[in-house]
Design a protein around this nucleic acid. Structure first.
Lengths: 342, 342
DNA sequence: CGAAAAACTTTACTCACGTAAAGATAAACC
DNA sequence: GGTTTATCTTTACGTGAGTAAAGTTTTTCG
């Protein structure tokens, strides 16, 4: 590293002995220049450590290397984890991810997309808020930018969707619980932010009916993203009422289940499968924390790596290829993870 | 909203009947133009929904409105939560935050700072990895950009530091545990990524000695950020060995404590304070999940809101004012949160 | 070795806005 | 109402790179 500070590509071209347009070409794609040229540039790079100015780069490019990742709530470890995997793969593909969280607020969601627009992103990976989302605005955005939706589907919006097969998730747990004990009740938020919740409730009802049991849905009140808190409060109520028809509870997601576990503990109920246990509790999603609850939570795991990989691959397909007329929807199967809570 | 698409400030100036330089002034600070002018612009804004191009804006500005927020590991809810608060306050101050996670990797940390440099950020809020960080590179970055360190202190690096008073944290818990039962052992990772851990161990030893007890530090092996996993594995070992001198364990942070709780549960030990309990477990930091563990975790809470507020205020002070010679270090006191685990 | 192809240099224009300076208008003030 | 002052318009240039076109050099290949 030499002391002279290189500020512009002009200066760097000078010290490297290569013309600026060629240097520019190199930075857009190192393989687009002759090997000898590439080496000369790289020698100079070692010496001077220059980086082209991002703003200037993107100003004229039709397409940037920016990929926006938008999740509804980053303090939810599920989204933090999936965002981490997405970032990794985007970087590996030579693009630059930028991560945003809507913080549960539809206005912020649109605000983010609006701001993203001026980043001229090559594509966007969007996990929308769901029910609360401003569909019209998101749709408008998707017309301008190749967008892949994940986690929450908004029918017809975006060029593709990658998510989980809620029906399979729920069927697996209901059948397992029923087979190994009593049929479960279903525990959910009355007005869930996430459309997966509705699909899961419907899958529960359908499966119970198919098995010849009466479905029993417990819908609790609560707004926002403090699911554990909401789940705990709701569960305290349910346990106080003694309104559970059987000893098994299937929660719409793991965070509600964690709340339920806390309520059961506080109520002095032993949770688990076996002698001396009053209650079985299962969840969905295999949240990163679920294996450390007491007792560890039986749930259905999402394959974060696979989802991230498929999402990113699909998006790059959309970016490179022509826009297809059909809108692919990829649903991943979950895997039942048996732990001691059920 | 009219149909004509406004793409540049030039076009927008035209339809709003105001000259471009004045429009430019407006976007930099709406209060810098006459009220009547402001109103005319805003009427046009309602009609045409125009946003100046960020890249072009920032290219010429000496100082942008960008604020970088860098945390070591976003899938840790502690950092997710504090990042959320920081973002909020940065936005409220009229700046645009961009969030990055180093994902526990010192190379990525430097990569992020490097990339950030070309965003010409007005300032950066950085929670460094700690021990693993490349001090020299970070120091170089801090010379160019006003940077406030938070959570982990790197001596002398950055223009200021905001963190927690580890000594006070530990003293509170040690004294409480001792006063209400037996003096605790200290449970930590042998090679913690985070420098707070070392401060906490030292504070534990000092406090125990002051109180006339022999300190007992349990250092467990493990690398990375899967603290619950590491804590659980380490605790299983400790419990199998029966090497605890007393019935109280103080964990360096809540995530280790959550792992310890899981190990205790699996070992059939009842955790809590009172009749029939074999073990008391306490943590530090009041992680968002700590109130939902079984039993709920006794810990010391960090005031996320206050820390975020102070950090952002301090940074803006640094940005606006002249660089001060002294490097302020603000330490926040924690508040002991008594729950049933200890 | 000579011709064709590939890669490079030079030149010049573009992108969308910041910003400075000079002159024109409007507002404020005595 | 005239003067001062604040604000606006016009003009022009700067930012740092993308990119296109024409001309030159290098490489490839028969």
């Amino acid at each position: 590293m030499t002391d002279r500070k290189i500020r512009t590509m002009e200066e760097f071209a000078e010290v490297s002995g290569i013309s600026r347009p060629t240097v520019s070409k190199y930075f857009n794609d190192p393989d687009s220049v002759r090997k000898t040229t590439r080496e000369r540039i790289e020698v100079a790079l070692e010496q001077y450590h220059f980086r082209p100015n991002i703003f200037a780069m993107n100003q004229n490019r039709k397409l940037t290397k920016n990929i926006g990742i938008v999740v509804p709530y980053l303090a939810d470890p599920f989204f933090a984890e999936i965002a981490r995997h997405l970032e990794e793969r985007v970087i590996a593909a030579g693009y630059q991810p930028t991560l945003y969280s809507s913080h549960g607020d539809p206005k912020q969601e649109i605000e983010i997309l609006d701001g993203l627009l001026s980043l001229k992103p090559a594509g966007v990976l969007l996990a929308p808020l769901g029910r609360a989302s401003d569909r019209a605005e998101i749709e408008k955005f998707c017309r301008d930018v190749p967008t892949l939706l994940f986690d929450s589907n908004l029918d017809g919006i975006g060029q593709a969707f990658v998510g989980s097969d809620n029906f399979s998730f729920v069927t697996q747990t209901v059948e397992y619980l029923t087979r190994t004990g009593e049929p479960p009740s279903f525990f959910e938020m009355r007005t869930p932010a996430n459309p997966n919740a509705n699909k899961r409730r419907n899958a529960y009802i359908a499966t119970m009916e198919r098995l010849g049991y009466e479905p029993h849905v417990i819908s609790i009140d609560g707004e926002g993203w403090a699911f554990e808190e909401i789940g705990k409060r709701g569960a305290m109520q349910v346990l106080a009422d003694k309104s559970l028809p059987t000893n098994a509870v299937l929660c719409s997601n793991d965070r509600l289940a964690i709340g339920f576990l806390a309520a059961a503990y506080q109520s002095g109920l032993r949770v688990g499968h076996g002698e001396g246990c009053a209650l079985r509790i299962a969840g969905h999603d295999d949240h990163p924390w679920s294996q450390f609850t007491c007792p560890p939570l039986t749930t259905v795991s999402q394959d974060y790596t696979a989802i991230a990989e498929r999402s990113v691959d699909l998006l790059f397909g959309l970016i490179e290829g022509a826009r297809t007329e059909d809108r692919p929807e990829i649903l991943f199967d979950g895997k039942l993870v048996l732990r001691s809570s059920a």
